[in-house]
């Protein structure tokens, strides 16, 4: 669906300022039917990559293909829906006129659009706004109407640049549901974001980008380790023997009036199995020392950990 090979982009603010590379040899591909998350902090090159795909800006080096055809191919463009970042649309149009305009540019006839417009307005939760002018819309409503124009022609591939921006939690959930709905219909969704929870919820695969470089790409299972990162234990009684034992351990210990908090992490070269048996030993010993275990919670790695680890590998982002 999308194939990007060694894409680079250089910008120059003015002719007297130095050239700045904002995208550096980025390569990835998106296959049919998947929801692909393009993750990265602000200014990492996500929007630039998307703009190159639509030839809004032109790549300095590299090449990209949509549906196996070079960029700019009209038959490919007709099969894609696009929502730009922070969209601003013609505010003198009503929802209906706006969708009619975009639908006609996509080659749909008036009769088809008359039927399709209420359907897409319904899909994005904007039913009944046909005759409202866009100038009266909130940011969230503009985002939704932008989504509506992206799917008005029932595209095979939907590319969304920061689709959650400006939406409240309910709106974000609705957009996530829409993505899942599109995927259920066999469509491919490619979206950029820096909101990690959205990615974790809907994405099949993720690419992490920072400072114009692609740092990591893969499925969530591939990126996030299934091993336990650390174990949190809360002990109910703080007798002296128990405290003495915990202090001998290589673990973080916090003591309060009536409880002990113990954070136990695996050693650098310790296997997951070995760590599990060590945790079990600590629990048994603690119980035998007269302690009462209130809670034990193993903490797994999250996408946020992976993201911070990757983005943190590079120096300042600007």
């Amino acid at each position: 669906m999308i194939e990007v090979k060694n894409l680079s982009k250089d910008y120059r603010q003015h002719f007297w300022t130095p050239v700045r590379r904002v995208l550096d040899s980025v390569s990835f591909s998106v296959t049919q039917g998947e929801v692909f998350g393009f993750l990265g902090p602000n200014g990492s090159g996500k929007s630039t990559t998307i703009k190159i795909l639509f030839e809004i800006v032109f790549a300095t080096e590299g090449e990209a293909y949509l549906f196996g055809k070079p960029l700019g191919d009209k038959s490919s463009k007709a099969r894609i829906g696009f929502l730009p970042e922070n969209p601003y649309f013609y505010d003198y149009l009503t929802s209906r006129q706006f969708l009619m305009f975009h639908g006609q540019l996509l080659g749909l006839d008036r009769a088809t659009l008359e039927k399709r417009i209420p359907e897409v307005l319904d899909l994005v939760g904007m039913r009944g706004t046909d005759s409202l002018y866009l100038r009266n819309f909130s940011k969230g409503m503009l985002q939704r109407i932008g989504l509506a124009q992206a799917i008005v022609h029932d595209p095979d591939l939907v590319i969304l640049d920061e689709p959650m921006t400006g939406l409240d939690p309910v709106g974000r959930k609705e957009v996530r549901d829409l993505m899942v709905h599109l995927q259920d219909q066999g469509k491919t969704v490619f979206f950029s974001t820096h909101i990690l929870s959205d990615v974790e919820t809907v994405c099949d695969r993720v690419a992490i980008l920072n400072k114009g470089k692609l740092l990591k790409i893969g499925s969530l299972d591939e990126l996030i380790s299934v091993d336990t990162k650390y174990v949190d234990m809360v002990w109910g009684s703080s007798n002296a023997k128990l405290q003495k034992y915990f202090k001998t351990l290589d673990a973080k210990l916090s003591i309060s009036a009536d409880s002990l908090y113990l954070k136990l992490a695996p050693h650098a070269d310790e296997s997951a199995k070995r760590f599990e048996s060590r945790v079990s030993e600590v629990v048994q010993k603690g119980l035998s020392e007269g302690g009462t275990l209130h809670s034990l919670s193993p903490k797994k790695e999250t996408l946020e950990d992976v993201f911070v680890k990757q983005v943190g590998n590079l120096e300042s982002r600007v």
Binding site: Y88, H102, Q149
Partner: peptide, 13 residues
């Protein structure tokens, strides 16, 4: 300036 052109040139135009 308002980037309305993004959603136009992304179409087969």
């Amino acid at each position: 300036e308002r980037r309305t052109i993004y959603s136009v040139v992304s179409k087969p135009v």
